[in-house]
C-alpha cells in the first residue's frame, strides 16, 4: 500500500514536471499567446478587426486556466497581459514570454498535482500516518518480543520496510525456556484492540472521510463551473431558435424591400409607358 501511494505521488510529480517543463504545455500555450498578441495589435493598428485571431486567443485562455489560476489585463494596443498562478513575472506581456518560473500555489490542475506530490502534501501525509501505524505495531510487539526483534523496519519508511524479523524457530513464546509456557504470546495477543489497531483504524477512517469530502467538493465545483459557463454562454453562445428567427426576419425584410422595388418599378412603368403618349 505504501508502494502504491509512492507510485501515485511519483506519477503526479512527473505529470507536473511535464506540464511545466520548457516547451511543456504551459510554455507552448504562452508562446502562441505571445505571437497572437503581436498579430492582434498589428492588425488593430491597420484598422481591421482580427476576430478569428481573438477567438483563437480566447480558446488558449480557456486551456491555460484549466492548468492554473490565470488573470488577464487587456492593454490599450489590443494585447493582453497574462499572469499565471503566483509566478512573480507575468507569463505573457505583449510578445514577451517568461517561462519557466517558480510556482508555490498555482491552483488549477497544476496546483492539485503539486499538492498531491509535494512533501507534506496529501499523499505524503497518508504515507506518514501509515508508517506511524506500522511503527506503533512494530514497537508494541517488539517491546514484548525484543530478542530477536519480532518486526524489523527502517526508520522513516516503516510502512514500506516492515518485515517479520524472526524465523519460526526464533519465535519466543515465554520469558522462561519451558516449551509449553505462553505468557509472552498471551501478552502479544492482548495487544489486540490496542494502540496499533486504533492507529490503523484512524488512518482508514480519515482516508475515507477525506475522499468523501473531496467527492462532495467535486460535485459543488462542477455545479459552480456549470453555472458560470451557463452565464457565459447566455451572453456569447448561439441559440439556434434565435438565429432562425433572425434569419426569417431578415428574409422577410429582404422580401419586403424586393417587393417595394417591384412596386416602384411598376409605378415607373405606369409613368413612362402609359402616360403622355406624345408623338405617337
Amino acid at each position: 500500500m505504501d508502494g502504491q501511494l509512492g507510485q501515485l505521488s511519483d506519477a503526479a510529480a512527473a505529470e507536473y514536471a511535464t506540464l511545466t517543463a520548457p516547451n511543456g504545455k504551459v510554455h507552448l500555450i504562452a508562446k502562441e499567446l505571445g505571437q497572437l498578441n503581436g498579430a492582434i495589435s498589428d492588425a488593430l493598428q491597420t484598422g481591421s478587426t482580427p476576430n478569428d485571431l481573438m477567438d483563437r486567443r480566447d480558446l488558449l485562455f480557456d486551456q491555460l486556466s484549466e492548468l492554473g489560476q490565470v488573470s488577464l489585463t487587456p492593454q490599450d494596443n489590443g494585447s493582453v497581459t497574462v499572469a499565471f498562478g503566483d509566478a512573480a513575472t507575468p507569463l505573457v506581456d505583449g510578445t514577451t514570454v517568461t517561462w519557466p518560473q517558480t510556482l508555490t500555489t498555482p491552483n488549477g490542475r497544476l496546483g492539485a498535482l503539486k499538492q498531491l506530490s509535494d512533501p507534506g502534501g496529501t499523499l505524503d501525509t497518508y504515507r506518514k500516518s501509515l508508517s506511524a501505524a506500522a511503527r506503533t505495531l512494530a514497537d508494541s510487539v517488539n517491546d514484548l518480543h525484543a530478542s530477536p526483534p519480532f518486526f524489523t523496519f527502517t526508520d522513516g519508511s516503516e510502512a514500506a520496510t516492515l518485515k517479520v524479523g524472526v524465523t519460526a524457530s526464533q519465535i519466543v513464546t515465554s520469558t522462561t525456556a519451558d516449551p509449553g509456557a505462553n505468557d509472552l504470546a498471551g501478552k502479544i495477543a492482548g495487544l489486540r484492540s490496542g494502540s496499533a489497531d486504533a492507529a490503523y483504524r484512524t488512518f482508514v477512517s480519515t482516508l475515507g472521510a477525506d475522499v468523501n469530502a473531496v467527492n462532495r467538493e467535486q460535485a459543488n465545483a462542477k455545479a459552480l463551473t456549470q453555472s458560470v459557463d451557463d452565464r457565459r454562454t447566455s451572453v456569447n453562445g448561439v441559440s439556434l431558435d434565435e438565429e432562425m428567427t433572425n434569419l426569417v426576419r431578415f428574409q422577410r425584410a429582404y422580401q419586403a424591400s424586393a417587393r417595394s422595388m417591384s412596386t416602384m418599378d411598376e409605378m415607373l412603368e405606369q409613368l413612362i409607358m402609359r402616360t403622355g403618349r406624345v408623338g405617337l
Binding site: 489486540r192 484492540s193 489497531d197 490503523y200 483504524r201 484512524t202 482508514v204 477512517s205 480519515t206 482516508l207 475515507g208 472521510a209 477525506d210 475522499v211 468523501n212 467527492n215
Partner: peptide
C-alpha cells in the same frame, strides 16, 4: 465497498471485524 462510502460505518466495521477475529 470503499471507506469513502461511509467513513463512520467503515470504522465501526473495522472494530467489529477485529472483535470477531478475537
Amino acid at each position: 465497498t470503499r471507506p469513502s462510502d461511509d467513513p463512520a460505518g467503515t470504522a465501526k466495521a473495522l472494530s467489529l471485524r477485529e472483535s470477531l477475529r478475537g
